[in-house]
């Protein structure tokens, strides 16, 4: 906490100005309308100023939003953050935020959601979801809930799942196998849809007074 406070003072003075791309570009590229992008900016401002008000969401701010605790480490949260950080510069900028959330929109295509989930689970970023990666994520999730299950049982759950998905039988899951599996098991993608995004203009209505949309 004390570290982030001193950071706060430093960063505020050397606050980098971030050039924002036009909202119409973002709207064209995503499932959002210009108004929705404008509403999202209010959410973004809230998240990006919770610790350091520099126009970017830092990992600590992301953790604070998810867990109400800025120092809580979580494997999956780290992965989600990295996926949002498209430019890989350690922060989430507004454009990245909108583009990534767009995949979680109820209107977004299932294909995009499937692809996003695959990349998220591919911890080593080598194009495959491997046995050890699945096991690592399962263990992380169980530990997070303070659940202890004997290793051989975890192993057998992972083994069984790998067999279900790995139709080619090479011991790892590629994108093709993942797609096939995810299409058959839509419940897997439930977490990839945020119904809340449909309501975004109502949740952050202040944009109506400052919109740049022409009449």
């Amino acid at each position: 906490m004390s570290i982030s406070m001193s950071c706060f003072c430093l960063m505020k003075s050397s606050r980098p100005k971030i050039k924002r791309e036009p909202f119409s570009f973002l709207a064209l590229e995503t499932s959002f309308t210009v108004n929705e992008v404008e509403a999202l900016l209010y959410l973004f401002k809230k998240l990006s100023s919770s610790i350091v008000d520099d126009g970017c969401i830092h990992k600590e701010e992301f953790q604070l939003a998810l867990f109400r605790n800025s120092s809580k480490q979580n494997l999956l949260a780290n992965r989600v953050f990295d996926m949002f950080d498209i430019k890989c510069n350690g922060v989430i900028e507004f454009g990245e935020f909108v583009r990534s959330l767009s995949i979680f929109h109820p209107k977004a295509s299932e294909e995009k959601k499937i692809e996003f989930a695959f990349k998220l689970f591919d911890l080593g970023k080598n194009g495959y979801i491997e046995h050890c990666e699945v096991k690592e994520m399962v263990l992380a999730t169980l530990t997070e809930s303070e659940v202890t299950i004997p290793d051989d049982i975890v192993e057998s759950i992972v083994e069984k799942t790998m067999k279900e998905v790995d139709s080619k039988g090479d011991g790892k899951i590629d994108m093709e196998e993942w797609k096939e599996y995810a299409e058959k098991n839509p419940s897997l993608l439930k977490i990839m849809t945020l119904p809340y995004l449909k309501d975004i203009t109502l949740a952050f209505p202040s944009f109506v007074l400052h919109t740049e949309v022409e009449d």
């Binding site: 998810l66 979580n74 999956l76 949260a77 699945v134 809930s145 419940s187």
Partner: peptide
């Protein structure tokens, strides 16, 4: 299955970035 367990991770649940008033409809226990 393994992916069901993973999707239970709170790190994967982005509802938290929206408002506090967005109360959870579900409760889970082991």
């Amino acid at each position: 299955n393994a992916f069901d367990i993973i999707s239970l991770s709170s790190g994967f649940n982005l509802c938290g970035i929206f408002e506090d008033s967005f109360k959870k409809r579900e409760a889970k226990f082991t």
